[in-house]
């Protein structure tokens, strides 16, 4: 078995990932693997809690895209209380759409201005190759 390269942590996703690249003796890539290293147990610990807490609890799955989780939980709660998607009030539907568009807008701006640009622009920073 040859060398193994490790990239850890991956910093442009939420969820604490790690990549390992396995090489053979001629340094050809045998396998590249993405490891999701974090387990928090949301699936279990949200059970048994008041249902109106769910949208706020699951926001904490990801601080980068909390609105998406909030809306997913809101849909699940709709199903639990017996509201069909067409049973939502027009205002409710519009507010959810507005929130989601806001999230997309914020997410793109965030990625561009604070994740991608600094890496390209702040070239004086040490090259991030230490983990490799």
């Amino acid at each position: 078995m040859g060398q193994k390269l490790t990239i850890e942590p991956i910093t442009r996703v939420e969820g604490h990932g790690k990549v390992t690249i396995h090489l053979d003796d001629e340094n050809n890539v045998v396998q590249s693997r993405l490891h999701i290293v974090e387990f928090r147990g949301f699936e279990r610990f949200v059970q048994g809690r008041p249902y109106w807490e769910a949208p706020v609890l699951v926001q904490r799955l990801c601080g980068i895209c909390p609105v998406s989780h909030h809306l997913a939980a809101a849909k699940a709660m709709d199903a639990i209380v017996g509201v069909e998607p067409e049973g939502l009030t027009p205002t409710g539907e519009k507010m959810r759409r507005l929130m989601h568009y806001g999230q997309i807008f914020q997410s793109h701006a965030l990625h561009f201005f604070t994740w991608s640009v600094p890496i390209c622009y702040l070239a004086s920073m040490p090259v991030p190759n230490k983990g490799m």
């Binding site: 850890e8 942590p9 910093t11 442009r12 600094p118 702040l122 040490p126 991030p128 230490k130 983990g131």
Partner: peptide
């Protein structure tokens, strides 16, 4: 820091 993607203390 994840902000600048420096993975180890220098």
């Amino acid at each position: 820091s994840p902000i600048n993607d420096i993975k180890e203390f220098t």
